[in-house]
Design a protein around this nucleic acid. Structure first.
Ligand SMILES: Nc1nc2c(ncn2[C@H]2C[C@H](O)[C@@H](COP(=O)(O)OP(=O)(O)OP(=O)(O)O)O2)c(=O)[nH]1
Ligand SMILES: [Mg+2]
Ligand SMILES: [Mg+2]
Ligand SMILES: [Zn+2]
Length: 574
DNA sequence: GCCGTTTTCGGCCCGACTGTTTTCAGTCG
């Protein structure tokens, strides 16, 4: 897992360095391989050990050349070509690529012709007006570089989708009320519901693009205009993110939305498919090469259909096999956004939640849930004000009383029980047996070596009371890496012990991720989708968890809390 | 460097916007 990310990072670096050397095509190949590794949930060392180079060459975009490099990294912890490239090009030159507007061609020229090999030198040269001496560079280029350097210093990290989506919806409404705008859609990674987003991409349909753009850049949300045309405008928003607005004519809604939803890799794959079929695909339509006729542009369905494919839901558009599935008409019926009947991982102010149990239950009733589990922290999670056995009993008495008051919802007693370092659960059987839902979570010892961590989880999964593993990799987006263990082994055990795994919808968690979900489903492990709410507002996070499950190609049947109460009771509670 | 029911060689997505340009390369989405 971590090793895949390590190798991917090296491949991205190799791609950049080759780009700087003006090498053609190879950078694309290395980036494609890097992306394959990032999305692959089995660690490369395991594959190499089991099947050698043949094993890695089965993966898309990985052939003999790149395969050998993976094997070398697994065996020696380094890759020769990368070591060579690093000697040829100073690290600072690659960093210069982070400056917006600075690509490999410009960076290479600044390095070759002015010996600029660091961000500091770049700044100094720009300030002193020494860059304009180069043909093709001018005063404006120097200003752009200086402004770009400021952005690099700020260091923009990707933002949490769950935080940005509500804001983006509001912004979309404002754009929708610009005169002449007929329709607005969120696009890009937001529409695909990636767990993090770099920017907000919005598609607007209107006849007169220029008018819309003029009004758009005057919105109070806009801090600064980066570029502005009649059909494409990029701005920096006051809230800190960039926003790309694309305005297209309503007739090309479908082709435009396919294009602007992406992913890039999905688009490229679709376009190559079109080429094979004697057509051309862009944001204005799918065109027949011979007649030049626009064959499909109105709806997304039309575009896919004309390419011989089923409609592909946005959450699946990552070019990780969905195109082949759509060609075989085997796109799964993904779990719907209204399919969840109960939240199974929630907190109250008995531990570290902000609201009372009753306030949480009231909101759960409002959300229309059939059942609702209250799962506060266990005693070892002291910072989270975890409950000892005595307080658990008291809390459960309160829940019994609330059940009488709210007969329209089935309240489930539970706990998010710490999995201790020895793998034992934080409560004994006499406490656990009183519970309907037992969430097993790791909240300590994240750096435990993989072998021990695997054993720890296996021990926990021996516990007959365990219902599911909570936030199963423990990652915190932008903050903490996943803890490492043998995921395949754990999933196989989960399947045989009938223990589910969670898709945690909390915006900074979103854990499992899409690739782990797909692996879990391959192993016939059931999912539960929960908010891990610490307040009544948090209960609205459910849609993000469902999105994540859809990104992992989950169907309703794969998700335990998509079962209506009676079936849930029969199949899950014991 | 990868890949193949039209290819084992010769392709590899395609268009918008900008700056420095007299006709377009570079970057980006
Ligand atoms: N055909 C094509 N489409 C692209 C390319 N780059 C981007 N797009 C399309 C698909 C993207 O989803 C969409 C928005 O671009 P972004 O750079 O904002 O990427 P995206 O939103 O997918 O991810 P992000 O979270 O912003 O990094 O534009 C490209 O190189 N070719
Ligand atoms: Mg985007
Ligand atoms: Mg964008
Ligand atoms: Zn929790």
């Amino acid at each position: 897992m971590a090793i895949n990310k390590e190798i991917a990072a090296i491949f991205y670096a190799i791609a950049d360095l080759l780009d700087l050397q003006g090498v053609e095509w190879k950078p694309i190949a290395f980036r494609k391989a890097a992306r394959t590794l990032e999305n692959y949930s089995e660690p490369m060392d395991k594959i190499v050990k089991a099947k050698g180079i043949k094993g890695v060459m089965e993966l898309p975009g990985i052939g003999e050349g790149i395969g050998k490099k993976i094997v070398q990294y697994v065996e020696e912890g380094k890759i020769d070509e990368y070591e060579e490239l690093k000697k040829e090009i100073p690290a600072g030159v690659r960093l210069m690529l982070n400056v917006p507007g600075m690509g490999p061609k410009k960076a290479a020229r600044l390095y070759k012709e002015l010996k600029i090999d660091s961000l500091e030198k770049l700044e100094a040269f720009a300030k002193e007006g020494k860059i304009r001496a180069l043909s093709g560079f001018g005063e404006k280029s120097e200003q752009d570089i200086l402004m770009g350097l400021e952005l690099v210093k700020k260091g923009q990290e990707r933002k949490l989708m769950g935080i940005i989506l509500p804001y983006a919806r509001e912004l979309a409404k404002k754009i929708n009320s610009i005169p002449g705008v007929q329709r607005v859609e969120l696009a890009g990674s937001l529409r695909r519901r990636r767990e993090t987003v770099k920017d907000i991409d919005i598609l607007a349909l209107a006849k007169d693009g220029k008018k819309v753009m003029d009004a758009f850049v005057k919105l109070p949300d806009v801090e600064k205009v980066v570029s502005k045309g009649d059909t494409k405008t990029a701005v920096i928003l006051k809230m800190g993110l960039n926003c790309d607005l694309r305005v297209l004519s309503p007739e090309v809604y479908g082709a435009g939305l396919v294009h602007f939803t992406g992913s890039k890799e999905h688009n490229v794959a679709l376009r190559m498919l079109a080429i094979k079929k004697g057509m051309k695909l862009d944001e204005y339509g799918l065109f027949d090469n011979k007649s030049g006729k626009n064959l499909a542009c109105k709806n997304e369905e039309d575009v896919y259909a004309r390419l011989g494919m089923q409609y592909i839901p946005p959450e699946m558009r990552e070019n990780t096999g969905e195109i082949e599935l759509a060609q075989q008409k085997k796109i799964p019926e993904l779990i719907g956004y209204d399919a969840i009947h109960g939240d199974l991982h929630t907190h109250t102010n008995w531990s570290d939640g902000a609201n009372t149990t009753e306030e949480m239950v009231v909101r759960a009733v409002e959300l229309g849930y059939d059942y609702y589990a209250i799962t506060d922290h266990s005693k070892s999670d002291v910072i989270a004000n975890g409950l000892n056995e005595k307080r658990v009993k008291e809390h459960f008495k309160e829940i019994d009383a609330l059940q009488k008051k709210f007969p329209q919802i089935q309240l489930l007693k539970g706990a998010e029980v710490a999995i201790l370092s020895n793998g034992k659960l934080d409560y004994g059987a006499e406490t656990l047996k009183e519970m309907d839902i037992v969430v097993g979570s790791i909240h300590s010892g994240f750096k435990t070596p993989p072998k021990e961590m695997t054993k720890r989880l296996l021990t926990a999964m021996e516990n007959e009371y365990l219902t599911f593993l909570g936030h199963p990799t423990g990652r915190l987006l932008n903050q903490r890496n996943p803890y490492e263990y043998d995921i395949e082994k754990i999933l196989e055990t989960a399947a045989s012990n009938r223990i589910a795994v969670e898709v945690n919808a909390f915006p900074s968690r979103m854990d499992f991720d899409a690739d782990h979900i797909r692996l879990a489903l391959q192993k016939k492990v059931k999912l539960v989708i929960n908010t891990d709410s610490h307040s009544t507002q948090n209960l609205d996070f459910m849609e993000f968890g469902i999105a994540q499950a859809r990104r992992g190609w989950a169907k309703k049947e794969d998700v335990l809390n998509a079962l209506p109460w009676k079936a849930f009771q029969r199949e899950v509670l014991r």
